Amino acid sequence: MTYKAILNGKTLKGETTTEAVDAATAEKVFKQYANDNGVDGEWTYDDATKTFTVTE
Results as ranks from 00 to 15, higher is better:
48 A>H: 11
5 A>C: 15
35 N>K: 15
50 K>A: 06
18 T>R: 04
44 T>K: 08
6 I>Q: 06
22 D>H: 04
49 T>R: 06
24 A>P: 08
36 D>W: 07
4 K>D: 04
35 N>Y: 15
42 E>Q: 11
14 G>D: 09
13 K>S: 09
11 T>K: 11
50 K>R: 15
14 G>N: 07
33 Y>A: 03
15 E>C: 14
53 T>D: 01
56 E>S: 08
53 T>L: 07
8 N>Y: 11
40 D>G: 09
52 F>I: 00
53 T>N: 06
36 D>T: 08
49 T>V: 05
53 T>H: 08
2 T>R: 09
26 A>G: 02
47 D>A: 13
7 L>W: 15
15 E>M: 12
10 K>G: 07
30 F>W: 01
42 E>S: 10
32 Q>A: 10
51 T>W: 01
14 G>S: 11
19 E>Q: 14
29 V>W: 14
23 A>S: 10
34 A>E: 00
30 F>N: 00
46 D>Y: 04
30 F>M: 02
33 Y>E: 03
34 A>H: 02
23 A>R: 12
16 T>I: 15
48 A>C: 11
56 E>A: 07
39 V>S: 01
25 T>D: 10
13 K>W: 11
47 D>M: 09
44 T>S: 11
51 T>E: 04
18 T>P: 00
41 G>E: 00
30 F>H: 01
35 N>Q: 15
25 T>E: 13
1 M>L: 13
55 T>G: 05
37 N>V: 14
35 N>S: 14
26 A>L: 00
8 N>D: 10
2 T>Q: 10
24 A>S: 11
13 K>Y: 12
52 F>A: 01
19 E>I: 15
9 G>V: 09
10 K>Y: 11
42 E>R: 10
2 T>N: 06
10 K>A: 12
33 Y>H: 04
13 K>H: 11
52 F>G: 00
28 K>S: 10
34 A>L: 07
41 G>Q: 02
29 V>E: 07
26 A>N: 01
27 E>N: 04
40 D>V: 14
39 V>E: 03
32 Q>M: 10
5 A>V: 15
1 M>T: 15
11 T>Q: 11
5 A>I: 15
1 M>A: 13
29 V>K: 08
39 V>L: 13
7 L>E: 03
8 N>I: 14
39 V>D: 01
2 T>D: 04
3 Y>T: 01
29 V>M: 10
